[in-house]
Design a protein around this nucleic acid. Structure first.
Lengths: 203, 203
DNA sequence: GACACTCTGTCCGAACACTTGACACCGGCA
DNA sequence: TGCCGGTGTCAAGTGTTCGGACAGAGTGTC
């Protein structure tokens, strides 16, 4: 049994993140006030600092949690496809669709005074990238063990960066981007799998 | 906003009560172990004592919470009847039916080593009685303001004691008991309301 | 009858987390 | 320039929980 204290700690963190996320969605990075987050969860300001270090730490934690949820959803999309190429296409499309509807991402990209928040996806995007690599990588290795680990990593990396770019700078609709990426990457995967005779070549 | 600490306190209490109730249902009063309750909620034994004083306090708290829930249900049965006599009948029937299905009551009355727990409904039943008076009284005053407060109290008291007796010592089926009580009490209510011409007299 | 065992109930010091109030610092603004 | 609202840090104070120890009651066993 996990101790009551542990569960309480996790719940505190979660409620603080809820309040912070709400604030960011409503007013961007500038609208995020440490004192307000504390007040809303019924806790002292100091407690927020104890938990997240500083304002940037709080924002990162919000982003990390949302990223986890996001990736969980994308992973289920992958899980529905038996073929890696189809999985890639499905994941990309799902990710771009989700992103376009996600209030936190929208706020980070469009809210006034959110130049800082948007950096979580660009110049300071290591955290999100790493998390995504971790979760997607594990999922891919589990679902398509026939794809060599190194190649999977390469594909995930390329796709990830392209997807993030499309989130930050929207272009064609999700399905089109997904198709494009699948077309571009499938020969690499096919070759690596020794499946030149595959029924899917897209060339 | 309620403070996080307050909410945590309430949650702790609730989880302790959950564990205790489960233990009583499974093993009666004797099966209720303070150490086990603590272990199951992931807290020290001392914390349980801090919260409830002693084992009897814990049992009373379990009973009080369950009584509240029970009465909430009975009150909704009352609320569905526009006429006080019908309300009385409905409440009695609902209460007896609920009681016959309630695991906690069943355990208190039948589990080996539950002579203590059963006292919550008999020799040490003040708490339950008072709670029921409080909740039912308020509800009756609210729904049938035409019934004088004192008369309502009398009726509630009589009905309550009869119902508890039937819970402790089951007799005829709920509907029969409900009819009996309605028949016995309706003349009193009708007379008090100056409604001798009422369409319902049951005599 | 002596003994071990289990559970209740109490005590107390250590550890821990949260609160409170104060302060330095910074940028925007009248 | 001085005020104001915000961030970030600090130390002291508070409250709660933990852990371990202990006495006492009841039960079963040899």
């Amino acid at each position: 049994m996990t101790s009551f204290a542990d569960r309480t700690k996790r719940r505190l963190r979660d409620e603080l993140l809820d309040a912070a996320q709400e604030a960011v969605v409503a007013g961007g990075y500038d609208g995020l006030r440490m004192a307000e987050v504390a007040r809303r969860t019924g806790v002292s300001r100091q407690t927020v600092y104890n938990e997240f270090g500083d304002k940037w730490g709080l924002l990162e934690a919000v982003a990390a949690r949302e990223t986890e949820r996001f990736l969980l959803d994308v992973n289920t999309a992958i899980a529905e496809q038996p073929d890696p190429i189809d999985g890639l296409r499905a994941a990309v499309e799902r990710a771009l669709t989700l992103a376009s509807e996600n209030p936190l991402i929208k706020a980070a990209l469009s809210q006034p005074g959110s130049d800082q928040a948007s950096q979580l996806l660009t110049t300071r995007g290591q955290q999100v990238l790493e998390l995504a690599h971790l979760r997607l990588g594990a999922h891919v290795r589990e679902h398509w063990p026939e794809v060599p680990a190194e190649d999977a990593t390469s594909c995930v990396d390329v796709a990830l960066r392209v997807v993030i770019s499309h989130i930050v700078t929207p272009g064609p609709p999700p399905a089109a981007v997904a198709d494009q990426l699948a077309r571009v990457l499938s020969p690499f995967l096919a070759q690596k799998r020794g499946l030149a005779e595959s029924r899917r070549l897209y060339l």
